[in-house]
Design a protein around this nucleic acid. Structure first.
Lengths: 237, 237
DNA sequence: GCTGTTTATAGTCATTACGACTATTAAGGA
DNA sequence: TCCTTAATAGTCGTAATGACTATAAACAGC
């Protein structure tokens, strides 16, 4: 049925929705905006907006990410298409097809509302009540995808600042997966994977915590983990 | 920027594109249609079409799959959303956002053209020249996705008929990955994964080939492989 | 029939990866 | 100075895997 003149077609509105994750205070947090008007007034929703005529969905998503987080240079952040949600009734006002994206940001850049009505805020995953539209579903899908990708990619470093300790990296895994990991085993695995992390030439974090100071690492050149770092018990969270 | 009355939006056409794979004669084959009109007249393209007003993209994809393959009961086939392609120039005529799907079908139901102008045909992967639009890209993405999913899911059985031998299952892996696998090791791995395959009560294929008859299996209840069945050498194809 | 080819299936063996630990080291705080 | 805390080092047994060799059961051809 590829013949544009043979069948009529209905134009749809196309939007992007963003599931932006960060790990702060040992907690998985999500960037959300509060809706000011119906439908779902007062409910939290994923940030997003229309794809403009000259944009691809990826471009629109990156633009929205910059607008909502207030981060100026958004080019280094991990942004990845999740999937497209197109159920006919997902927006009660009109037919909206939404391309959802997942983004991972390193630390806690408290969002600067980018001239928009609704202010974006970090909220704990699951701590915002029922979200607007089908955003609970999107957010759950995004979390599952992130958890799965931690197993076989080096994606976890996207949550970390440029220099980090192995303890911080481990906490990313523990927070996203919701499980505790054995510290020596985690360390052995990470260091045995070539290109996952590389040591910062001559440094050890000293003044921070109260234990033995930890060595600093930065992200390496590898993107995939072979063999993968599987979460315990098969499935979790 | 979630405020529909604040910004204008451009309506887009929304289509689905299908990358339908099968393994036949030890070869990975793809369902393609020949374009009869400009643009890309005479070139091969992925089957697909518009999402109708009352449909989700998944519904439209399944409808197209039934139309193009001629398979009556399409409900058991594996159909999965791949990703959405939305580059502004991807269709020279108009702004089209396309949700791509990947389908795996078991055997060789030679397609019955479903009342459509262009007849769908099975062609070897890579053997159809340059495809229309950005379909080369979509098809490559789909193949990579399928190859990756074979590693950690039981998806390979979707390529097989209801009852199959372990040799046939192994050939699925070898064909999709483009690598040879050690037969005893493959067999050990598959049988050691509970729920991947289960033996057919009392049967062994006899008359078929020229070697020792192989036992028949059918797909089990499991959907994921723990631990995964990694393809050799990390990346391939 | 016998023989050889072909393919399925059974098993071996060494290496690696991994989960569950224990031990040591280097800080800060009381 | 001692205690607590956290990082790092190392051990040990088991599971998983890659690379094999061996046997069994069919058919083709002579």
């Amino acid at each position: 049925m590829r013949g544009y003149d043979k069948y009529a077609f209905e134009p749809f509105a196309v939007t992007v929705d963003l599931a932006v994750f960060t790990v702060r205070a040992g907690e998985l947090q999500v960037l959300l905006v509060e809706r000011g008007q119906a439908p779902y007034a007062g409910r939290w929703a994923l940030p997003g907006g229309f794809v403009l005529p000259h944009e691809s969905a990826e471009t629109a998503a990156r633009r929205e990410l910059a607008e909502e987080t207030g981060i100026v240079d958004v080019s280094g952040l991990h942004l990845e298409q999740l999937r497209t949600y197109s159920e006919p009734g997902r927006d009660p006002r009109m037919r909206v097809v939404s391309v959802a994206f997942t983004a991972l940001v390193p630390d806690l850049p408290e969002p600067r509302g980018g001239g928009d009505a609704a202010q974006a805020r970090w909220l704990p995953y699951g701590g915002a009540g029922a979200l607007a539209f089908d955003h609970d579903r999107i957010l759950a899908d995004a979390r599952e995808r992130v958890g799965a990708k931690l197993e076989y990619t080096c994606l976890a470093t996207s949550f970390c600042p440029p220099e980090f300790t192995l303890g911080e990296l481990q906490q990313i895994y523990e927070t996203v997966w919701g499980t505790a990991l054995d510290r020596p085993n985690f360390r052995r695995k990470v260091l045995a994977t070539p290109g996952f992390v590389e040591p910062v030439p001559g440094a050890a974090r000293l003044t921070g915590g109260r234990g033995k100071p930890a060595a600093l690492y930065r992200a390496g050149a590898a993107t995939t983990l072979h063999p993968p770092l599987l979460r315990p018990e098969g499935r979790s969270s």
